[in-house]
Structures are given as C-alpha cells and as structure tokens.
C-alpha cells in the first residue's frame, strides 16, 4: 500500500516538474528543416516524388526519405545531407556521373513551347513557332524537357572539359605489388 502510494506520489511530482520544464524549454519549430531545405536545389522539380523541395526537407528530417533521394543534387548533395543530418551514408555507391546539359537539335525543333513551359529554371528561351535554345548557365540538367518534347529534338549531353574545368585527379594508390 505504502509502496503504491509512494510510487504514485513520486510519479506525480516528477510529472509536474517535467511539465513545468517542457513549458520553460519549449521549442517552436524545427530549425533543421529550414537548414535542410536551404541545401536542396529548390526547383521543386518533383523527381524525388515529393511535392516540392520544402516537403522533401520535412520528410528528410523525419527520416522518411533517404539522403540520396534527390537526383539533380547527386552525390554531393547526398553527402552534404548526410553530414547535416548526422547519418551514416556511404556515397561511394552512387554513380557520380558528370553533370549534363540539355541541347536542342535545331533541325527538329518545331517551336511547340512545351519544353519551355516545363523547364523549372526558365533555362529554355524561345517563342511559339520559333526554334528554342537552352541557356546552359541556367540549365540544371534535370532532363524534364527531354520527356515532354514531341519531336525528340532535345537530348542531354556531357559538356567537354576545358582548361578551366580541369581538376587534378586523385593520386593513383600505387602500393607496390608483390615483388
């Protein structure tokens, strides 16, 4: 009897203390969601299957999405997210293909403006019935335009490496073979 009463009292006292504390240390919103969404491309391209980047950020923080969910972000984003969220993630398996750009085959373009409407960054310029062009410095290589083009005049290509883009490769790990 005493035991039960004591336990009840103890529980009541501790509960009261925690209740007060929870008022005192209230956290309004999760700042992490904002930080994560700042990392995402923000194009709301929808390739991940979520309704836009902010939603995806929330899902990520809740752990309902894997850090490698974002195709345009690629390996770099996955690593950045893993770092931010403190999850163990081995990005070595992710194909880190070179960034691609969209290119319009001008012979085939009929000026339908479909790609133009679809492009999440307004990287395609042109007007109805006129040949469109891709502004490469705005193209994110998401490939959405390729899907909608009725004449298949759009293709993705890997831009050539020039002197400005060249980077030192990682040294070859040339540990001596059995001599």
């Amino acid at each position: 009897m005493i035991a039960i009463v004591m336990l009840a009292l103890l529980g009541f006292a501790l509960g009261l203390a925690l209740g007060v504390a929870s008022k005192r240390f209230k956290v309004e919103s999760d700042p992490l969601v904002e930080e994560v969404s700042a990392l995402l491309p923000g194009t709301n391209c929808g390739q991940c299957g979520f309704a836009g980047c902010p939603t995806a950020a929330e899902k990520l923080v809740k752990g309902e999405a894997s850090v490698d969910f974002c195709p345009p972000g690629g390996k770099a984003l996955a690593e950045a997210l893993a770092e931010k969220l403190g999850v163990d993630f081995d990005a070595s398996g992710m194909a880190d293909g070179p960034p691609k750009l969209a290119r319009i085959n001008e012979a085939l373009c009929i000026g339908c403006v479909k790609c133009f409407r679809e492009c999440p960054t307004d990287a395609i310029v042109g007007a109805p019935k006129q040949i469109h062009a891709v502004m490469w410095n705005a193209c994110t290589g998401c490939g959405k335009c390729v899907d909608v083009c009725p004449t298949m005049c759009l293709e993705m290509f890997v831009p050539e490496t020039g002197l400005a883009q060249w980077r030192w490769p990682k040294p070859v790990e040339s540990v001596a073979k059995a001599a």
């Binding site: 925690l18 504390a21 929870s22 240390f25």
Partner: peptide, 18 residues
C-alpha cells in the same frame, strides 16, 4: 523508483539539449 527518477532526469536533459 530509481528508474523513474532517471527517466525524469533524462527527459529533462533532452528538453534542455533540444
């Protein structure tokens, strides 16, 4: 009862850390 106390302290710590 010790576990009860510990659990409460941990809850409190969690709030503070958060």
């Amino acid at each position: 009862s010790f576990i009860l106390v510990i659990a409460a302290v941990v809850q409190f710590t969690e709030m503070v850390v958060r």
